[in-house]
Design a protein around this nucleic acid. Structure first.
Length: 887
RNA sequence: GGGCGUGUAGCUCAGUUGGCUAGAGCGCUGCCCUUACAAGGCAGAUGUCGGGGGUUCGAGUCCCUCCACGCCCACCA
C-alpha cells in the first residue's frame, strides 16, 4: 500500500443521505477550514466575504454567489494556500431597524430615557389576532438598539447553520458583525483619521432626503422609478408690462418656493426678459429671470421655474446663480406650517394657508384647484410618465432639504489626495489596477466614478448604526459650535457621543452653554461596510494578522453594488493605506426566476434554499450554483439540481467499482512503479486525465470555476460510460493479473484525481468517497498535478491515444445493433466486422481484447478500407422455454 | 442619450487563438433488471447557430449594420 491510503471501507450500498450531518461536524472538529496564520503573505489567500444582510432570510441568490466563492476558496486551499475566509454579518442599518419595528411592534423615541428592566415584547406574529395591530410601543434609543442586537444575534445563528449545511469552507472562528464592537471601532477610527487628514468634512447644503425615514440619502442609494406626473402650464406676470410668461412644471406645489425663472442665454424668445423680474401667480412674489446654459430651449416652454428645491438641477442653478433659499418642504414631507416671510401680499398669504401642513401630494392637488380658480393654469395638465428619484429602500419620492451633514471625499468633488493626485483620477486608476472577473465589469466602476456629482454623504439621521464619533462645544448663547468638533482619542473607541463624554467634560455639561453636545447621527451603513477588509484583517488591532492578509486577494460580490460596496471600499483603502484593498474582484450574476426576472424579496418570487438542500442534498444545490458562469445571470433551475444529485450518486457508484474486488492489492503504487500501467485504454484515459488537470487548473486560476466543473464533469461521464464499460471484464481478471493490475492502477489514479477536481464543487460526496480509502480530508489534499501521470503517458503512441474513443464508438455500434434487435446487451455477437481507415484500425486493434470483452464478441474482424462500416451478426438468441399459455 | 452584456435543439447551456458531417444535459421516443449504479443503463430523433451584408479557401467563431431582451450610467423643468 502506498502512503496516504487507509484501510478500505467501501459501503455495500453507498448513499448521499445524511452526508451533511456527518461531515459538517467532523470538519469543524478537525479544523479542516481553519486559517493557518503561520503562513507568509504570499502563501495566504484572503477573501473579503460579503457580509449578508441579516434582516431577512437567505435566498437562492445568496446560495448561488457564496458557492462560487467557496469553490475558489477550496481550490486555493488545495493548491497549498492558507485560505483566510472569514464571514461577516451585516446587521447594521435600516433593514434591521425596520425588521425590529415590525417583528416586535416597537418604535424608537429618542426622547425617552433608557429602561434597564425592559424586556423584549412578544413578537407580533405570536400574539393573539386582536393584539397584532396595536400601536407600536415607543422605547428609548438604547433599548431599541439593544433589541436590534438581540434579534440579529438570533438571526445570525440561523444563517450560520445554513452556510454550514451548504458546505461553505469558512473559518467559523473568524466572524464579525457590522454593528459589532470591533466594526464600530474600525469605522470610527477610520472616520476620525479621515477627519484629521481633511478627507471628512461637514457642510450645510441641500441634500436628497427621504421624508419617511427623515434621513439624508447618498447618491449611491438612489434609484429611478417611473411615476405618473403632469406638466402644468402656469403664467408668471412680467413686473413691468404684466405680460404672461408661461412655464411648465411637474411640481406646481413648489410655486411658493420659486426663486427665479431661467432660460438658455441664447434663447431668442427670452432675451428681453433677462435681468428683469416677474411675479409668481397666487403668491405674488417678485423673482428675477436669469440665463443659464442648463436651461433646455426644447423642454416645455424653454423657460423653467427654479424652486428650492424641486430637483438637482434646481440646486445647480441655485448655487451657480447665487439665488436665495426659500424652502417650504419640511423634513417629514409636509408644506411648512408657518407662512414664509417672503410671501407678503394678503392674497398670497391666504393661498399659502391653503397648503400649509399638507403632504406633498395633497398640496399639489390643492394648488391646482387654486390655480384654476385664479385662472392661472393654462389648459389641462398634460399627463406624462417620468423617472423620479427614490431612496432605494424608500416608498416616496425624495425631496431636497437643506441640512448639515458629514461628507467623505470620494472624488465626487475636486480634491487632491495625499499623493498630490486628483482623487477622482487616482480612483479611476485603482479601478484599472484591480483585476475584474469577468473583465467587462470594470466599465461599471468607471461609469460610476465618472458620474459622481458630489462627495459621499455619510451621516444618517437614524439609530441602529455606528455613531459619528464627535461632540461639539455649546456656545454661550446655546448654539452649537460645529466648526470645532471634538474627536475622541483612538484608545477610547468605540464611543457613543449620546452617552459617552468628550475629554475634559462631565455629564452635567451635556447640552448646557459652555458644555457640549454629541453628534446625534450615525454613519451610512456603507461607511462601515467599506471597511470590511480592515475589520476582517484586524487593522490596528492584530498587526500580525493584518500583515499576513491585507491587501486581500479577492472581493467577491454582486454587480449591483459595484457603485456602493466595491467603490466605497476602494475609496477607504486608497485614503487610509494608499493601496487597493484586494487584487481581484469576482462579480457574480443574479439568479433569475423562470420568467427571467431577478429574484428578490420585494418581487415575492424568492425560493427558500433550505428546502432544496433537504430534497437534493447540498452537493446538488452547489452543482446548480457552480454551473452559473462568473458574472452571468442564471435561471433558477431545479432540473440542474437533479442532475447534480445524479452526478453525486454516480460518483459514489463509480468509486465503489473502482475500489471493488481486485483493487486492494494495487493501491496507488503505480505512482512508484509506472511500468504497471501498460494497457492502451489505460494510457489513453490517463492522457485525457492529464489534459483535464491542465484545463481545470487554468480555469480555476482565471476564476472560471464553472468551466472547471464542466470539463471535469464531461470527463467523468466519459470515464463512466466509455472507459468503465470497456475495462470491466479486465478489472475482474478476465485477461489475467497483469492486465487487471494495469486497470486497477489506472482506476485509482483517476479516482484520486477526479475526487480532488470535484472537491471544490461537491465537498460532501468527495469527502465521503475519499474517506473510504484515503487518510485525511480531500479538502486538505494537494490539488492534482501531472506527477502521477506524466511517467505513464510519456511514451504513449498515437494508436494508444486514439484507442479509447475508437473502441467506445465501436462498442456503441455493437450495442446499437443489440438495441435494434430488441435484445439484451448480454447477447453475444457471433461476428463483428469493422471497416475503417488505417489509423482507426490501429487504435481498435490496440483495444481489441477489451472491446471483445465489453461487446461479448466471438469473432472480431478489423479491416482497413475506404468506406467505414460496422457489421454486427448477433448469435442466435438462447432458446427460451415456451411460456405456458394460460388457460 | 451614453455604455456593457446576452441572443446556438422545446428547456438550461458548452463551443479557448476561424478548420473536416454544430455539442452536452433535461425533456421526448424505443430498448434493456448487464454482478458500480433501476432516484439506473443503452440507443435514437430534433438546430434558417437573432436578421442582413462583408473579409476568407473556409465564419456559430472576425468586421459592419439592424433587431430583441437584460443591466449599468446620465443635471429626466
Amino acid at each position: 500500500m502506498s502512503d496516504g491510503e487507509s484501510t478500505r471501507n467501501v459501503p455495500e450500498k453507498p448513499t448521499l443521505e445524511g452526508l451533511e450531518g456527518v461531515w459538517g461536524p467532523r470538519w469543524e472538529e478537525q479544523g479542516t477550514y481553519q486559517f493557518d496564520r503561520d503562513h507568509r503573505r504570499e502563501d495566504v489567500f484572503s477573501i473579503d466575504t460579503p457580509p449578508p444582510t441579516v434582516s431577512g432570510s437567505l435566498h437562492v441568490g445568496h446560495v448561488f454567489s457564496y458557492t462560487h466563492t467557496d469553490t475558489i476558496a477550496r481550490f486555493q486551499r488545495m493548491r497549498g494556500k492558507a485560505v483566510f475566509y472569514p464571514m461577516g454579518w451585516d446587521d447594521n442599518g435600516l433593514p434591521t431597524e425596520r425588521r425590529v419595528q415590525n417583528y416586535y411592534g416597537v418604535s424608537c423615541d429618542t426622547s425617552l430615557p433608557y429602561d434597564a428592566s425592559f424586556i423584549a415584547p412578544i413578537p407580533v406574529a405570536e400574539r393573539p389576532k386582536d393584539q397584532q395591530k396595536l400601536m407600536p410601543l415607543a422605547i428609548s434609543r438604547r433599548n431599541f438598539v439593544e433589541l436590534c442586537a438581540q434579534l440579529t444575534a438570533a438571526d445570525e445563528l440561523v444563517f450560520e447553520e445554513l452556510w454550514r449545511t451548504l458546505g461553505l469552507s469558512v473559518d467559523w472562528s473568524m466572524t464579525y458583525a457590522t454593528i459589532g464592537t470591533r466594526s464600530q471601532r474600525v469605522a470610527q477610527r477610520a472616520f476620525i483619521r479621515n477627519l484629521a487628514r481633511g478627507e471628512a468634512y461637514q457642510n450645510e447644503a441641500p441634500v436628497l432626503w427621504d421624508v419617511d425615514f427623515t434621513c439624508a440619502v447618498a447618491q449611491a442609494e438612489l434609484e429611478d422609478r417611473e411615476r405618473p406626473g403632469a406638466y402644468h402650464r402656469i403664467p408668471f406676470a412680467r413686473t413691468d408690462t404684466g405680460e404672461p410668461i408661461f412655464i411648465e412644471t411637474t411640481r406646481p406645489e413648489l410655486l411658493p418656493a420659486c426663486v427665479a425663472l431661467v432660460a438658455h442665454p441664447t434663447d431668442e424668445r427670452y432675451q428681453s426678459l433677462f435681468d428683469t423680474t416677474v411675479r409668481t401667480p397666487l403668491f405674488d412674489v417678485e423673482i428675477p429671470v436669469r440665463a443659464h446654459e442648463l436651461a433646455d430651449p426644447e423642454k416645455g416652454s424653454g423657460i423653467a421655474m427654479i424652486c428650492t428645491f424641486g430637483d438637482l438641477t434646481d440646486v445647480i442653478w441655485w448655487r451657480e446663480l447665487d439665488l436665495p433659499t426659500r424652502s417650504v418642504v419640511t423634513p417629514n414631507g409636509r408644506i411648512a406650517a408657518d407662512t414664509p416671510e417672503w410671501i407678503s401680499s394678503p392674497a398670497g398669504q391666504a393661498a399659502y394657508g391653503e397648503l400649509a401642513g399638507k403632504k406633498i401630494a395633497g398640496a399639489q392637488q390643492r394648488i391646482v384647484e387654486l390655480l384654476i380658480e385664479a385662472d392661472a393654469l393654462d389648459g389641462e395638465p398634460r399627463k406624462i410618465v417620468h423617472d423620479v428619484k427614490f431612496f432605494e429602500k424608500g416608498d416616496r419620492p425624495l425631496e431636497i432639504i437643506t441640512s448639515r451633514q458629514w461628507y467623505l471625499r470620494n472624488g465626487g468633488r475636486a480634491f487632491t489626495d495625499a499623493n498630490g493626485d486628483d482623487l477622482r483620477e487616482a480612483l479611476l486608476r485603482r479601478g484599472k489596477e484591480l483585476q475584474w472577473h469577468p473583465g467587462h465589469m470594470a466599465v461599471r466602476y468607471d461609469n460610476w466614478v465618472n458620474g459622481l456629482n458630489g462627495d459621499w454623504l455619510v451621516s444618517r439621521q437614524r439609530y441602529f448604526g455606528v455613531p459619528i464619533p464627535l461632540w461639539y462645544p455649546v456656545n454661550a448663547d446655546g448654539t452649537f459650535d460645529y466648526d470645532h468638533p471634538i474627536s475622541p482619542t483612538e484608545d477610547r473607541l468605540p464611543v457613543d457621543p449620546s452617552t459617552d463624554l468628550p475629554p475634559g467634560y462631565d455629564e452635567s455639561q451635556r447640552g448646557e452653554p459652555g458644555g457640549f453636545v454629541g453628534d446625534p447621527d450615525i454613519m451610512d451603513t456603507w461607511a462601515t461596510s467599506s471597511l470590511t477588509p480592515q475589520i476582517a484583517c484586524g487593522w490596528e488591532e492584530d498587526s500580525d494578522l493584518f500583515a499576513r492578509t491585507f491587501p486581500m486577494d479577492l472581493r467577491p460580490q454582486a454587480h449591483e453594488i459595484i457603485r456602493t460596496w466595491l467603490f466605497s471600499t476602494t475609496v477607504r483603502a486608497h485614503l487610509e493605506h494608499n493601496a487597493l484593498p484586494w487584487a481581484h474582484a469576482s462579480i457574480s450574476g443574479w439568479v433569475l426566476d423562470p420568467d427571467r426576472k431577478k429574484m428578490s424579496k420585494s418581487k415575492g418570487n424568492v425560493v427558500t434554499p433550505i428546502d432544496h438542500i433537504v430534497t437534493y442534498g447540498a452537493d446538488a444545490v452547489r452543482y446548480w450554483a457552480a454551473s452559473g458562469r462568473p458574472g452571468t445571470d442564471t435561471a433558477f433551475d431545479e432540473g440542474q439540481m437533479k442532475i447534480g444529485r445524479r452526478l453525486a450518486i454516480k460518483i459514489l457508484n463509480a468509486s465503489k467499482f473502482a475500489l471493488g474486488p481486485g483493487s486492494e492489492t494495487i493501491g496507488l503504487f503505480a505512482v512508484a512503479n509506472p511500468g504497471i500501467i501498460n494497457e492502451p485504454l489505460d494510457k489513453a484515459l490517463l492522457a485525457e486525465l492529464s489534459a483535464l488537470i491542465t484545463d481545470a487548473t487554468n480555469a480555476f486560476e482565471s476564476y472560471d470555476y464553472a468551466r472547471a466543473l464542466e470539463r471535469t464533469e464531461a470527463f467523468f461521464w466519459r470515464f463512466c460510460d466509455q472507459y468503465l464499460e470497456l475495462v470491466k471484464g479486465r478489472a475482474y481478471g478476465a485477461q489475467g493479473d497483469r492486465a487487471a493490475a494495469s486497470t486497477h492502477a489506472t482506476l485509482q489514479i483517476t479516482l484520486a484525481t477526479i475526487l480532488r477536481l470535484f472537491a471544490p464543487f461537491l465537498p460532501y460526496v468527495t469527502e465521503e468517497v475519499w474517506s473510504w480509502w484515503r487518510e485525511g480530508s480531500v479538502h486538505r489534499a494537494e490539488w492534482p498535478n501531472q506527477s502521477a501521470i506524466g511517467g505513464v503517458i510519456s511514451d504513449i503512441t498515437e494508436a494508444e491515444r486514439a484507442s479509447l474513443a475508437a473502441a467506445a464508438n465501436a462498442l456503441g455500434e455493437i450495442r446499437k445493433a443489440k438495441t435494434e434487435a430488441k435484445t439484451s446487451l448480454k447477447t453475444a455477437v457471433a461476428e463483428c466486422v469493422i471497416v475503417a481507415d488505417a489509423a482507426t484500425i490501429d487504435a481498435l486493434d490496440a483495444a481489441r481484447l477489451d472491446l471483445i470483452e465489453a461487446g461479448i464478441v466471438t469473432a472480431l474482424e478489423l479491416v482497413v478500407g475506404d468506406e467505414p462500416s460496422v457489421t454486427v451478426t448477433l448469435a442466435p438468441a438462447p432458446t427460451l422455454a415456451p411460456t405456458p399459455t394460460p388457460t
